[in-house]
């Protein structure tokens, strides 16, 4: 086998893999769009669900999803910054750093249902919180933590030592160096991590199913201890009514809305990151 042939073979394999992945993605998006678009209307977006979702809209499901994810993001961001700064600036032992990074990677790979079961045992039964959207946000924050932390850590860790040394040489303390040199740069990494984690969290059903959501009969929460309905759990409930075409169509409509929300978050975060990064990269 000549080198040229090997190279061509490799290139073809890469292009084939790319085509397959793109086709699957386009197929998925097109299916959701074609099946979901007929259900979308202003009424569908703004009206509450009726008849177990077979009628009405998805207003409270959108509110529920947004509240849970937004609160989870607010809870997880300071934690992620803290952990990543601790890892990059305060842990001097390479062995300890390796252990902590392995723990984070392991946490990142834990199936989402495990988080749900933990929330059920610890919060709902252990602390007696009952079904609460806030507990759901805490669990989602726990799920998002390793993704955002690792992304932030990698960004902070990639800042050349010379920047730290220059800051220290200017008489800046460690806290000033962290605040004025490392955090502004780590922020890009955190936004990237948040973007990935948010996209994952907003589509999660398993971790919040038992602890934060009700499938029907809920409105916008008026306190921390109330359940909400979210888009993923609503889609799950509608998918179980397969014999009712109206329910199925609403399910596709909810799926399209969820996809658009993820896209909106991703684009917003990307634009935000681009604007921050412009002229600010070390």
């Amino acid at each position: 086998m000549t080198r040229q042939f090997k190279s061509r073979l490799f290139n073809s394999a890469v292009v084939a893999a790319l085509l397959i992945a793109t086709c699957v993605m386009i197929g998925l998006i097109m299916t959701i769009f074609i099946k979901g678009a007929p259900a979308i209307s202003l009424d569908f977006i703004t009206a509450p669900a009726q008849n177990f979702g077979a009628g009405g809209g998805i207003a409270y499901q959108i509110i529920g999803s947004l509240i849970m994810v937004a609160v989870a993001a607010c809870l997880v961001m300071p934690m992620a910054f803290g952990v990543s700064l601790y890892l990059s600036e305060f842990v001097t032992s390479a062995h300890m750093k390796k252990i902590l990074l392995t723990a984070l990677l392991t946490l990142n790979g834990v199936p989402s249902i495990t988080f749900g079961i933990f929330g059920l045992i610890f919060f709902v039964y252990g602390l007696g919180t009952g079904i609460s959207w806030f507990v759901g946000s805490i669990i989602l924050a726990m799920m998002m933590l390793p993704t955002i932390t690792l992304s932030t850590y990698q960004t902070i860790n990639s800042i050349p030592t010379i920047y730290r040394e220059n800051a220290y040489a200017l008489g800046m303390s460690q806290s000033q160096t962290i605040w004025h040199v490392l955090l502004p740069q780590g922020f890009h990494g955190a936004v990237t991590g948040l973007l990935i984690a948010l996209a994952r969290a907003i589509g999660e059903t398993a971790p919040i199913m038992f602890i934060a959501t009700a499938f029907s009969g809920v409105s916008a929460p008026r306190g921390l201890n109330e359940p909400v309905s979210t888009l993923p759990t609503h889609i799950l409930a509608l998918a179980q009514q397969a014999t009712n075409p109206q329910a199925l169509q609403n399910g596709w409509g909810a799926a399209l809305t969820l996809m658009c929300l993820v896209l909106f978050f991703s684009l917003t975060a990307l634009i935000f990151r681009y604007k921050l990064q412009k002229g600010q990269t070390l």
Partner: peptide, 29 residues
């Protein structure tokens, strides 16, 4: 001590801000 004994390193290191802000980077803190 480090404010009294300034140091310039081998590799020029500018912070991701304007020229003016770079000059004031240390003193403004």
């Amino acid at each position: 001590l480090r404010q009294s004994v300034g140091m310039v390193f081998q590799k020029a290191c500018v912070f991701p801000c304007s020229i003016k802000d770079n000059v004031l980077f240390g003193i403004s803190k």
